[in-house]
Design a protein around this nucleic acid. Sequence first.
DNA 1: GTTATTAATTGTTAAAATCGATTGATGTAT
DNA 2: ATACATCAATCGATTTTAACAATTAATAAC
Lengths: 297, 297
Amino acid sequence: MYLPTIKQLQYLLAVVELRHFGQAAERCFVTQSTLSSAIQELETSLGVQLLERTKRKVLPTPTGLEIAEQARKILKISYNIIELSSNSKNPLCNEVRLGVIPTIAPFLLPKVLLPLHQAFPALSLLLIEDQSAHLMRRLESGEIDCAILALPYPTEKLACQLIGEESFWVAMPEGDPLTKKRKISAADLPMERLLLLEEGHCLRDHAMSTCGGSEVKAQFQGSSLYTLIEMVAWGQGVTFVPAMALESPLLKHARIELRPLDEPTPHRQMALVWRATSYQKNNMVILADKLAELMVG
Amino acid sequence: MYLPTIKQLQYLLAVVELRHFGQAAERCFVTQSTLSSAIQELETSLGVQLLERTKRKVLPTPTGLEIAEQARKILKISYNIIELSSNSKNPLCNEVRLGVIPTIAPFLLPKVLLPLHQAFPALSLLLIEDQSAHLMRRLESGEIDCAILALPYPTEKLACQLIGEESFWVAMPEGDPLTKKRKISAADLPMERLLLLEEGHCLRDHAMSTCGGSEVKAQFQGSSLYTLIEMVAWGQGVTFVPAMALESPLLKHARIELRPLDEPTPHRQMALVWRATSYQKNNMVILADKLAELMVG
DNA sequence: GTTATTAATTGTTAAAATCGATTGATGTAT
DNA sequence: ATACATCAATCGATTTTAACAATTAATAAC
């Protein structure tokens, strides 16, 4: 079964509309002989006469008319395909599905979403908040295009670009003995009163490695930084918060005091990651650059 | 501006659906390398990445998905085109636009329409009644596909096939002196009482040539055989009628008597004519054969 | 009769499509 | 770890196709 070609249909349509091989050929930017034989080819492959030719006029057969009508549709869709692809060529005009981990999302997004929209008006961001491991899986399956993670994190086979760095602070209840220090060192931390996020949050792992690895036995596992902060405010213990969170209304809490950590200051790096093969790889670099710029400013 | 080819779109659709170059190639009956390069060709001509390839999986980009969707439509229309043309290949399945002259139509059509429909159930006949000259013009312009005319008539450049022959009879009022003869000869005809159809009807010309050419001065010009017969019934004169009309209810008229003409019997031939270039030329022969068969029976 | 117009035809060349075989990268099983 | 299997890209060779320029045959117009 031989499918017609778009070119054949294009030629047929031109002849049906102009009723003239020569003019049709001109419109299609080919010679009359090229057009003529292309249409003959179409006729024999379909096994049907599409045009009645006399030396003086060209008359489409009913079948020829019907097929020309279908050809019109096909041509229209073809132009539509070209339109579709040329639209998608502008940088950051596609929908970008971005995953962000829960300990970054609430602090970073309010800060960057508006400026991002101003910088790339055609960009449509779809946000997904999930833990690092889940985001990795969704990234690999193509469900999302990129993710903002906290490093260190194993990101083999992903392209990765840093967008910023932030140190950890210690949050403690108002009047806690620790508040007497301007800077807290790892040794000062009361392991027995340390509050951590539940399993799966990378902030938990980063905090644990700051305090000396698996020795830590966290007393309580909060499911979000919000709950954790509330616990601290009620005097249940102390915890780590990322620097970005300091500006959050959450930490304007009257009953919480914050102290930086001593040198070497523990910190985490934030990075945008994506599949190295991603069709958006060029856009990803642009996006990461913009994010880095917004983090500094 | 380069249009995609249907083949490229077909290959793309296969890959998007199967997520596998090898299987897609198999489905399309080509080698993997053929399919692979065809899709690369499509991508570069559109200037857009349509697929993300890793060694282990193939992931369509959003643009790739959209274009595959359009490809699906185009493929569907293409198959439709093939369907359209193969449908039109059955003999006499198209619409056939048939012109018939007014002195044949009312006598022939009642006789043949039903049997024709039984013989070619898929045939859709569109009937047009008009004078020979008009039919010729409409035939040439492609407005109709074929016509039933009475010969002799100049039919240059048209294909032509006889479907029957009929002699002329003379219709006269009941009790007319002429009724005493069993057969009428041309010389017997009362020229001053001869009623003819108006200009343009070929029956008029045939009648005139029977009576000796342009010598005839017809007293009255009827616009249809029906009026003419009524005139005869009212004793206004005599006229010619074609043999086929004898069976018509029109001539069961009580006040009309009919007589055949003497040897050499004047007659007319009926023929189906069509453009020699007509896409229906094969069908026309079939149709003419059938008509001839029905005329005899 | 001559000329102009038109589509088909012919012969040639350039472009492309396709294939088979190979490569390089990547998982999977032992 | 190592060998094996899988997969898409790549390469080189061959066939097929598309396109053109020039010509021909048929027709209409003058």
